[in-house]
Amino acid sequence: MRYEKPTTVEAATALLAGQGARVLAGGTDLLVQIRSRILNPDVVVDIKGIDTTRKITKDTSGYTIGAAVTGAELKEHPTLSKDWPGLVEGANLIGSTQVQGRASLGGNLCNGSPAADSVPAMIAAGAVATIAGPKGTRTLPVEDIMLAPRKLALTAGEFIVSFKIPARPAHGGDAYLRFIPRTEMDIAVVGCGVALALDAGGTCTAARVALGAVAARPLLVEDGAKALIGTKVDDAALAKLEAAAKAACKPIDDKRGTVEFRIDVAGTLAKRVAKIALERARKV
């Protein structure tokens, strides 16, 4: 195995275009897979030498978050937690404090697990990935990146440089919760992110609902958003949201949970998450 640490996007894409190359950001998934001999890459391309992968910038259109920025750094940012608390919470549910010191949004997404904690939160927030490749740069909404377990919509040589998170709406709030058997350290059995915006009268004008770990890929639940938009997010709307979330699930039985359990908990979580997002939207 070779280790390379390019300092430019162009050098990175050139290395990644080769056979058997893997991106190293925080390494919290990659190194485990190498150690347990699931992966045996020829070359590991550490993208942390590229400035843009390590920075958070803010302007009127929102935030640009480098793909290798760690969960701990997201949490320490002076305004991000105020604007997008759900996104920061999702990223900070990945593993332990130690893991949060390394794990990144880019890695969490590109590891290709449907249970990744930061992904439903990013989808709910409307995050768009900036992807660099041998043919230049393109953008893709986060919900379109993971296609199936370990399968991404990236082609040879491409990697995610950063994520664009829109500016928070005036009365906007987001939240993320996941269900795990313990309080920490587990992989999500169900994850749910909700972002919504209210008008001055408290009626929901926009919403995005996303679920993780209930299908082969993270889901954007359009019917969940429809259940909320135009309502005061009252009990009737939440009941519709619960039904929509449950209907969207196509889970599997595995060592972490049953089909029935995942569907039930997706409904429970969707309601709980929407309530938190609502509270947050009302406060700003």
């Binding site: 280790y3 190293l24 925080g26 390494g27 919290t28 190194l31 485990v32 150690r35 347990s36 590991v44 550490d46 942390k48 760690t70 701990a72 593993g95 332990s96 404090t97 130690q98 893991v99 010191g101 390394r102 350290m185």
Partner: peptide, 26 residues
Amino acid sequence: SSGDCGACSVLIDGRLVCSCLVLGVE
């Protein structure tokens, strides 16, 4: 060696990490 137990915890530039999840070269 999978970041689940924390017995290998060290600080890198003041940041808490599992040293089993960091390459020596990093």
